[in-house]
């Protein structure tokens, strides 16, 4: 029997329906499970197992293979700083240090309040706008240590319910990999990528 509310179950069914084999839906459902609990709980993995026909051990095996399925409690804001080669060349390590300092959270950890989780990550595909930072996977390019500090302060003070990539780029970003051209209205609400079909965006979708 499912632990999920009826609308989430509907969403799960829809996601499964997108694939020829229910097992293929395991990743989208893991995101859905993270949306439910804020991170990937054992119960969440068990639930995904039930929907896809995997055993819980198989779901855990898949989930832990990937970096974005987090099996430990996370903060409201997951701040990811790229320290791969291109960002490192342009000061990614300093940005990371600034974020750790401003949040008081060393990389790989979450504060007691569960406001911030901080991590350094490998290449985010924003090398032309290095160094790159993401908040809940929403991108900010061309950041500096000062801007990164300001970003963290802003998150701490304002506690925005949702974060928006264009908005944050405007406030705390610099040079972009390319012209973003048009602003986008979709927002992220938690430490998982915001993607409408997965029901991981804000609003009444799930």
């Amino acid at each position: 029997m499912s632990l999920w509310p009826a609308d989430v179950q509907e969403r799960a069914k829809e996601l499964i329906g997108r694939y020829p084999d229910p097992k293929s839906a395991v990743m989208p459902l893991l995101y859905l499970a993270m949306r439910q609990d804020g991170y990937l709980t054992e119960a969440g993995m068990g639930e995904v197992a039930g929907w896809t026909g995997h055993t819980p051990a198989q779901v855990q095996s898949v989930a832990t293979f990937y970096g974005m399925f987090k099996t430990e409690p996370l903060g409201q804001y997951l701040v990811s700083v790229c320290t791969s080669i291109s960002c490192m060349l342009l000061g990614g390590d300093d940005v990371l240090e600034a974020v750790e300092e401003a949040t008081g959270v060393p990389h790989g950890e979450t504060d007691a309040e569960r406001l911030f989780s901080v991590e350094h990550v490998e290449c985010l595909g924003a090398c032309g706008g290095a160094p790159a930072v993401q908040v809940n996977y929403e991108l900010i390019e061309g950041s500096t240590p000062d801007q990164a500090r300001a970003l963290c302060r802003w998150l701490q003070d304002e506690r925005p319910e949702v974060v928006n990539t264009d908005d944050m780029q405007e406030r705390f970003g610099g040079r972009r990999s390319f012209d973003w051209a048009i602003a986008e209205s979709e927002n992220a609400v938690g430490p998982y990528p915001a993607f409408g079909p997965y029901g991981t965006t804000p609003g009444g979708e799930v």
């Binding site: 993995m45 055993t55 051990a57 095996s61 832990t64 293979f65």
Partner: peptide, 21 residues
Amino acid sequence: DPLIEFKDRGNHTQVQTFPDL
């Protein structure tokens, strides 16, 4: 009985069961 599986990735890969299973 796929109750033991690899967990994590790369150099952290390990054989594991699901907690309590």
